[in-house]
C-alpha cells in the first residue's frame, strides 16, 4: 500500500463519485426533456441555454425548502432511510470497470475502483441493501400510505431479485467468472458481446433492472394514484431529494452494469485494428462505455414515457410466473448448449 496507490484510488473514487452524481443530476433534466420531446413539447428550457442550469436550480430549491419531520415519525430511522438509500446507490459503482488501463509514466492505472472476484454478487448485495432505505423510510414515516409503499418496494425487490439472479447465472455459466473486469475483458470487439449468446437472459435482466430501480412500469412503491406518492409522502426538502437522487444513481449504475455485462462495456468494434496506442484505446473505450450507459438511460426514460404502470398482481404474476420460469429455462438451455459445444466442437 504505497502512497501513490492510495492517492490513485482516492482520485479514482472521487472521480467516479462525482461523475455518478453529475450524471444523476442531469438525468433529472434529461428525464424532463425526453418527456417533453415525446409529448411534442420542449421541456424545461428557461434556466440557462436549453435548461442546462435547471438541475442546479432544483437542487438549490431542495436545500432551501422547509424540512419537516412528522410528529409521529420515528426520528432516527426517518433520517436513516434516505441516508441508506443514497449510500447504497453510490457504492454500487465501485466494481464497475470504466475502462482498460492507462499508462502514465511507468504507472499502470486500472480504471476500476476495485476488482473483487465476486463483483457481480457485490452489486447484487448492494441492490438488496438498497431496499432497506425505502423500507425504513416508509415505516418510520408513521403513515399508512408510505408503509404500503415500503411493503410494496420490499416484496417487489425480493421477487425480481430472484429472476435477476437466475438470469445472471446463465450469463455466468457462459463467462465462467464473477469478476466484472474479466467479464468485460472477454467481450472484446463486437461479435463477442454477451448479448449475442444471452439474448433471453438480457431481456429478463433488463425487466428486472427496471423493477429494481423502481422505474415505470414497475414504480408501484411510489405510485401516485393509489398511494399518493408512496414511501416518500412524508419526506420534504433534501431528504426527498436524496431519495429521488438515489433512484437516478441506481439507474446510472444499472445502466453501467447492463452495458458491462451484455454490451461489452468499454469494448468497441475494431478496437485493435485501428493501430492506436493503448492509452488512446482506453480513452475511446471510456467514451464508448459512457455512450452505451447514456443509451440505456435514454431507454429507461423512453420506456417510462411509453408504458403505463402495472397493476400489483400483474407485477407479481410477471415476476413469479413468467420471468422466473423463463430464467430457469434459460439456464437449462445454456447448460445444454454449453455441453453440446464442449463435446462436439
Amino acid at each position: 500500500m504505497e502512497l501513490a496507490f492510495v492517492i490513485e484510488k482516492f482520485v479514482l473514487v472521487t472521480i467516479v463519485f462525482v461523475i455518478s452524481l453529475v450524471v444523476a443530476m442531469y438525468s433529472t433534466l434529461a428525464e424532463r426533456k425526453v418527456a417533453g420531446f415525446m409529448q411534442d413539447r420542449f421541456g424545461p428550457d428557461r434556466a440557462g441555454p436549453f435548461g442546462i442550469l435547471q438541475p442546479l436550480c432544483d437542487g438549490g430549491k431542495f436545500f432551501f425548502k422547509e424540512e419537516i419531520i412528522p410528529a409521529g415519525a420515528h426520528k432516527p430511522l426517518f433520517i436513516l432511510g434516505p441516508t441508506i438509500a443514497i449510500i447504497t446507490a453510490c457504492i454500487g459503482s465501485a466494481v464497475i470497470p470504466w475502462g482498460q488501463s492507462l499508462t502514465i509514466g511507468d504507472r499502470i492505472i486500472e480504471l476500476q475502483v476495485t476488482d473483487i472476484n465476486v463483483g457481480v454478487l457485490y452489486i447484487f448485495g448492494v441492490v438488496a441493501l438498497g431496499v432497506y432505505g425505502i423500507m425504513l423510510g416508509g415505516w418510520a414515516s408513521n403513515n399508512k400510505f408510505s408503509l404500503m409503499g415500503a411493503v410494496r418496494a420490499a416484496s417487489q425487490s425480493i421477487s425480481y431479485e430472484l429472476a435477476m439472479g437466475l438470469s445472471l447465472i446463465a450469463l455466468l455459466m457462459v463467462t465462467q467468472s464473477l469478476s466484472l473486469r474479466e467479464i468485460v475483458a472477454q467481450q472484446s470487439g463486437f461479435v463477442n458481446w454477451n448479448i449475442w449468446v444471452q439474448p433471453l437472459g438480457f431481456l429478463i435482466f433488463l425487466v428486472c433492472a427496471f423493477a429494481e430501480c423502481n422505474r415505470v412500469p414497475f414504480d408501484l412503491p411510489e405510485c401516485e394514484t393509489e398511494l399518493i406518492g408512496g414511501y416518500n409522502v412524508e419526506y420534504s426538502s433534501m431528504k426527498l431529494g436524496l431519495y429521488m437522487f438515489s433512484e437516478y444513481i441506481n439507474m446510472f449504475v444499472s445502466s453501467a452494469l447492463m452495458s458491462a455485462l451484455y454490451f461489452g462495456g468499454y469494448n468497441f468494434p475494431f478496437m485493435y485494428d485501428l493501430g492506436l496506442s493503448q492509452n488512446w484505446i482506453t480513452i475511446i473505450g471510456v467514451i464508448v462505455f459512457f455512450v452505451k450507459i447514456f443509451a440505456f438511460i435514454f431507454f429507461f426514460m423512453w420506456i417510462r414515457w411509453t408504458l403505463p404502470r402495472f397493476r400489483y398482481d400483474q407485477l407479481m404474476n410477471l415476476g413469479w410466473k413468467m420471468l422466473i420460469p423463463l430464467a430457469i429455462a434459460n439456464i437449462v438451455l445454456t447448460g445444454v448448449i454449453t455441453i453440446i459445444k464442449d463435446t462436439f466442437f
Binding site: 415525446m38 411534442d40 420542449f42 414515457w305 411509453t306 408504458l307
Partner: peptide, 21 residues
C-alpha cells in the same frame, strides 16, 4: 405491443414541436 408503443413515442420524439415560445 411494447415495441409498437416504443415506436410511437420515438416518432413523437422527432416530430416538429408546435410550442410557441
Amino acid at each position: 405491443a411494447i415495441f409498437q408503443g416504443l415506436s410511437i413515442t420515438i416518432k413523437h420524439f422527432f416530430k416538429r414541436i408546435p410550442t410557441v415560445r
